[in-house]
Simulated scan of single mutants.
Amino acid sequence: MSRWGLAGCVVAAYAVGFLMFLGLRHWQAGLPWTQAVRDAAVFAFIATLGGWVFRRAFRVGERRDDDHGG
């Protein structure tokens, strides 16, 4: 995947996570919109960053398996 394709996937994942967390924080937790937006932005960022870290870790693991003939 090209860098632009990866960037598009990251932005899409963040947007979906942001909207999902926004709905959860506002409607289920009953927070005001300003606090729900702030919480959703933080939660979506952490989830997106975590996904990126897992992707990198799996990619490194696959490279090691390929290098060792596994």
Rank of each mutant, 00 (worst) to 15 (best):
M1R: 03
M1H: 05
S2C: 00
S2Q: 00
R3D: 08
R3K: 06
R3G: 03
R3H: 08
R3V: 12
R3W: 10
G5L: 02
G5W: 02
G5T: 04
G5N: 05
L6G: 04
L6R: 09
L6C: 03
L6E: 10
A7R: 01
A7Q: 00
A7K: 00
A7E: 01
G8I: 04
G8L: 06
V10T: 07
V10P: 00
V11T: 05
V11Y: 02
A12V: 01
A12S: 01
A12K: 00
A13I: 01
A13Q: 03
A13F: 05
Y14M: 00
Y14F: 02
A15W: 02
A15S: 04
A15L: 05
A15M: 03
A15C: 04
V16A: 03
V16W: 02
G17L: 00
G17N: 02
G17C: 01
L19M: 08
M20C: 06
M20K: 07
M20N: 07
M20W: 11
M20A: 10
F21M: 13
F21Q: 09
L22W: 14
L22Q: 05
G23W: 07
L24G: 06
L24A: 03
L24K: 03
R25V: 03
H26R: 12
H26G: 01
H26L: 03
H26S: 04
H26Q: 08
H26D: 06
W27V: 01
Q28T: 06
Q28W: 08
A29K: 07
A29W: 10
G30P: 10
G30F: 11
G30H: 10
P32H: 09
P32E: 11
W33L: 09
W33N: 02
T34I: 12
T34H: 13
T34D: 14
T34E: 15
V37K: 07
V37P: 05
V37Y: 11
V37N: 07
V37R: 12
R38T: 06
R38D: 13
R38G: 06
D39R: 13
A40H: 04
A40Y: 07
A40G: 06
A41Q: 10
F43L: 13
A44S: 04
A44C: 02
A44G: 01
F45Y: 11
F45Q: 05
I46K: 09
A47N: 08
A47Y: 10
T48A: 07
T48H: 06
T48S: 08
G50R: 08
G50F: 11
G51C: 07
W52G: 12
W52V: 14
W52M: 13
V53F: 15
F54Y: 11
F54C: 10
F54H: 05
R55M: 15
R55A: 15
R56I: 13
R56E: 14
R56T: 15
R56W: 14
R56K: 14
A57M: 14
A57N: 08
A57C: 08
F58R: 12
F58P: 00
F58G: 11
F58H: 11
R59G: 14
R59N: 14
V60P: 04
V60E: 15
V60M: 12
G61C: 10
E62Y: 09
R63W: 12
R63T: 13
R63G: 10
R64L: 15
R64F: 15
R64W: 15
R64E: 15
D65K: 10
D65H: 10
D66M: 13
D66Q: 14
D66G: 08
D66F: 13
D67W: 14
D67L: 15
D67M: 12
D67P: 07
H68V: 09
G69T: 11
